[in-house]
């Protein structure tokens, strides 16, 4: 397609931007909740595991629930820490 001046023009759909610029503190505050949530989940897993061992000799039915919860939190924690400890590249200008 060419217009009257003879220059070639191509119609391109507007794509999403590849890079965005923001403040360092805002970026930190955006991803640090994921890191904290991962730590929280690991703590829950440890606490429920310890509780499960104690309940095993007193209330076995509850200990089963505690072990299930411990495994759930143990397996879910990397999904939160993984977001925070991603290999996504950032650029800082010093």
């Amino acid at each position: 397609m060419s217009n009257i001046s003879g220059r070639q023009t191509i119609t391109v759909e507007k794509g999403a931007p590849l890079l965005a610029q923001g403040k360092r503190w805002d970026y930190f505050m955006r991803y640090q909740p994921f890191w904290l949530q991962g730590i929280r989940y690991r703590t829950y897993a440890l606490a429920l595991g310890i509780a499960g061992i104690f309940l095993l000799f007193t209330l076995p039915l509850l200990s089963v629930l505690a072990f299930a919860g411990a495994m759930y939190f143990y397996r879910m924690s990397p999904f939160y820490t993984g977001v925070a400890s991603s290999k996504r590249r950032l650029i800082q200008l010093n």
Partner: peptide, 14 residues
């Protein structure tokens, strides 16, 4: 850390 360093720009993937 919060006011000066945190207020500087950071370029990241959208």
């Amino acid at each position: 850390a919060v006011k000066w360093y945190g207020g500087r720009p950071l370029i990241h993937t959208a």
